[in-house]
Amino acid sequence: STHNELEKNRRAHLRLCLERLKVLIPLGPDCTRHTTLGLLNKAKAHIKKLE
């Protein structure tokens, strides 16, 4: 159905954006896999440090 396709595309776009963010944020050497929340929290902390 159309709704399923739209949802699939939305999730794919979100995944792509999170992958791009992961490249930009210093995550530390001990981190190989992150939850979305963990990645967003690290991004928030990094932005605050830059301010």
Rank of each mutant, 00 (worst) to 15 (best):
1 S>G: 08
1 S>Y: 05
1 S>R: 03
2 T>Q: 13
2 T>I: 07
2 T>W: 01
3 H>C: 12
3 H>V: 11
3 H>S: 12
3 H>R: 09
3 H>P: 12
4 N>V: 05
4 N>P: 07
5 E>K: 08
6 L>I: 08
6 L>G: 14
6 L>H: 15
6 L>Y: 07
6 L>V: 11
7 E>Y: 08
7 E>L: 10
7 E>Q: 09
8 K>Q: 04
9 N>S: 04
10 R>F: 09
10 R>I: 07
11 R>C: 07
11 R>V: 04
12 A>F: 01
13 H>E: 08
13 H>S: 10
13 H>Y: 11
13 H>W: 06
14 L>I: 12
14 L>T: 05
15 R>I: 02
16 L>V: 11
17 C>H: 02
17 C>N: 04
17 C>Q: 02
18 L>P: 03
19 E>A: 08
19 E>V: 00
19 E>S: 10
20 R>H: 01
21 L>H: 06
21 L>T: 01
21 L>I: 09
23 V>T: 14
24 L>A: 06
24 L>E: 01
24 L>K: 06
25 I>K: 00
25 I>N: 14
25 I>M: 08
26 P>V: 02
28 G>K: 15
28 G>V: 14
28 G>S: 11
28 G>W: 14
29 P>H: 14
29 P>T: 14
29 P>I: 15
30 D>N: 14
30 D>V: 14
30 D>W: 12
31 C>W: 14
32 T>S: 10
32 T>Q: 10
33 R>I: 02
33 R>P: 08
33 R>W: 10
33 R>M: 05
33 R>A: 06
34 H>T: 10
34 H>N: 12
35 T>R: 14
35 T>M: 15
35 T>W: 14
35 T>F: 14
36 T>F: 13
36 T>D: 02
36 T>R: 08
37 L>C: 07
37 L>N: 06
38 G>H: 09
38 G>V: 07
38 G>Y: 03
38 G>F: 03
38 G>A: 11
39 L>H: 00
39 L>M: 08
39 L>S: 01
40 L>W: 15
40 L>T: 02
41 N>P: 05
42 K>L: 02
42 K>V: 03
42 K>A: 06
42 K>T: 08
42 K>C: 08
43 A>P: 04
43 A>S: 02
45 A>F: 06
45 A>N: 11
46 H>P: 03
46 H>T: 13
48 K>N: 02
48 K>C: 06
48 K>Y: 12
48 K>Q: 04
49 K>Y: 01
50 L>Q: 05
51 E>F: 15
51 E>Y: 15
51 E>C: 14
51 E>R: 15
